[in-house]
Design a protein around this nucleic acid. Structure first.
Lengths: 249, 249
DNA sequence: AAGTGGTCTAGACCACCAC
DNA sequence: TGGTGGTCTAGACCACTTT
């Protein structure tokens, strides 16, 4: 120890080292804030500041009224932004989600809404006529009991109405295979990423600790005639992912 | 007001609305934490929790011993991950940085080191022989007086030694144009993104507020013979950027 | 010299969890 | 029923900026 740093940073360093040394196994409970304060001769607020740093790093997790626990190690999910959308993948019946690196990505909280009015920026991106409606597929994805992704896929109702895309199970190859059958094969994509703090709903649905950022990822898909056919707004637990874009010059 | 939310969230909402309504112009100083505590009949700690939320959103900025100020509005920089690397861009002499959307991106703190030992993961990515050294180009980029990006570009010393790449100014078209002249034209790229809390050095060099996340973006460039020729580790102020990847299926 | 944010202290109450 | 994290209070000192 010994530099002129803050107490809470020093305490965070101590606890981090202690956890990484295995003094507290994954899933184990740390001493309470009160007892840490006593043990290290600092005030409870100082302990809280130290723990806040470790929460931001994803190392620990506080469950209200229960205790502070070491999180299970979580290898970030590698999401290959470009290869996953290669036509020969979903064309062959595989889900585009299956390319997320051999993890059990489970769909959760699936809701399909038909004939709904799209938010303005979605309507604009889909180049909808006035009062034209969309089909909205909302999903949550869970990996190893951890919710990691919220997805809201908007498609023009006039295009997908009556097709299997409006069913919970879109069938082999998923939405894109069905779009192809409708003569609207997606051939061009844009993914737009930004990082921001989560809103309340996202904190709850992704079980995010305080201070954890999310990645907002908006994908637009166009068919060959430059017609936009899907806008998918995704929100990712930022610490749970590594995003990967591989391409030729 | 009126719901059963926390005091500090309510106060944050109030202050956010007040700022967005123009009660405090960009650059203006907010009342001190002490006076806010008095004005809203809450304790200083509660004020600090409220202000912490607004800091995370990038709305305000606290300067120690000086005050809390409304940040200048900052339109995120749109960085086109794929188009910026199209060969006809740098081939024609333009910098790949110039595609970052008509902003004055200024290079700052440029340091070139030759014949240095690369970190292990860089050496592995560049497929270096044992004890083979690299040239390291470190830069900081500033937009509108705001530091937004740190970049460390590693290139095999054996490839670039003696070339203009080891000079501060790499000339028209930059590093990639020079690599082309050396017979190592980059033709394939991978960009790998993750979001994490900044380390101390990044907090300082990017003037990051507490709690602000960064994007770590690692680009690897390969020449036609599948030889890796550059690894560029970038660290971005996450709130300052929108990343954009546009591609065909 | 006055005022500031950052840090720190030393308590308190609450709703909830686990026993 | 005891212990917990989350919230809140009401102070304090320090190094530094600003006037």
């Amino acid at each position: 120890m010994g530099t002129n740093r803050n107490k809470y940073e020093q305490l965070a360093d101590t606890l981090r080292a202690s956890i990484k040394a295995g003094d507290f196994a994954p899933g184990a409970q740390l001493p309470s804030e009160r007892s840490l304060a006593g043990e290290y001769n600092v005030s409870p607020q100082t302990v809280r500041q130290a723990l806040a740093l470790l929460k931001e790093e994803g190392l620990i997790e506080a469950r209200a009224t229960a205790g502070v626990f070491v999180r299970e190690p979580f290898e970030p999910i590698r999401r290959r932004g470009i290869q996953r959308l290669a036509r020969d993948r979903w064309g062959s019946g595989a889900s585009i989600w299956s390319t997320d690196e051999g993890r059990d990505l489970v769909v959760d909280q699936l809701v399909v809404d038909e004939d709904v009015t799209a938010p303005k920026h979605i309507a604009a991106a889909l180049e909808l006529q006035a009062s034209e409606t969309v089909c909205l597929r909302s999903r949550r994805f869970v990996v190893a009991d951890r919710p990691v992704l919220l997805s809201r896929s908007y498609l023009p109702q006039s295009l997908v109405g009556g097709s299997q895309i409006t069913q919970p199970d879109t069938g082999p190859g998923g939405t894109y295979a069905r779009l192809a059958e409708l003569g609207a094969t997606p051939v061009h994509f844009r993914e737009e990423l930004r990082v921001r703090p989560p809103v309340r709903e996202e904190i709850e649905r992704l079980s995010l600790p305080v201070g954890a950022p999310v990645i907002q990822l908006v994908r637009t898909a166009w068919a060959g005639n430059k017609r936009p056919v899907e806008v998918n707004e995704m929100v990712l637990d930022a610490l749970a992912y590594v995003l990967d874009y591989e391409f030729d010059a």
